[in-house]
Amino acid sequence: MGRIFRKPEVMTDEPTHYCPGCTHGLIHRLVAEVIDELGIRGRTVGIAPVGCAVFIYNYISVDFQESAHGRAPAMATGIKRVRPDLIVFTYQGDGDLASIGIAEIIHAANRGEKFTTIFVNNAVYGMTGGQMAPTTMPGQRTTTSPFGRKVEEVGMPIKIAELLSTIETPGYITRQTVIKPKYIVQAKKAIKKAFKYQMEGRCFSLVEVVSICPTNWGLTPVEAVKWAEETMLSYYKLGDCKTPDSHKGV
């Protein structure tokens, strides 16, 4: 056995609405594979974001709630507090989580809410048409930074994984990417670990996934992978930022 690669059971047959080369579909698949492998379909509730991935519920066949922009961690908190037996995950982009929803994610992480966040960082607002995000790279041109992101005016991109790792409450915070197969294998392991921590009732877990948006970057998918590797990965370093075991505590 071993080498069997096919669509996870929990994924629907509906082709995604994403642009060619968009890695949302890939990350959906990793989440779906983990749900299948852990056998948790019947007790999983996802929170769909505002952004390109709002229709995630058309592709992953579990219960879903649809959030407002940035509020998914608060909704997940509400669910998890009244139904700790459910497995809850939020799926959020960088405008959603790192900008409008930064208060919600920080406080959810700080309370140690036992849900899992998949945080897709592609350095741009996707659905609204490629505007600058808090994660946009210095000099990166977007529709609202047409001359490139000027750090003297809008600051440096926010490193969410590192930021959340400063929180003293135990948690699992990791940064992964899906721009190459070897990284994809690692990303899936991290997502699985995150869900397992939740199932064990141990801690809040967040997997930041450095991702590509060829359409809004104005690049072909292959060029986008190259740009992400050269530009983003040197700034957004891969690996675990924090595990519940590494936590020193008080």
Binding site: M1, R3, I4, F5, C22, G25, L26, P181, I184, V185
Partner: peptide
């Protein structure tokens, strides 16, 4: 050689490799 790299990379789950 059925290594699965294409499956892993495919954003649209369009490729499958089965026994």
């Amino acid at each position: 050689n059925f290594c699965g790299a294409c499956y892993l990379m495919c954003p649209d789950v369009a490729i499958s490799i089965t026994e």
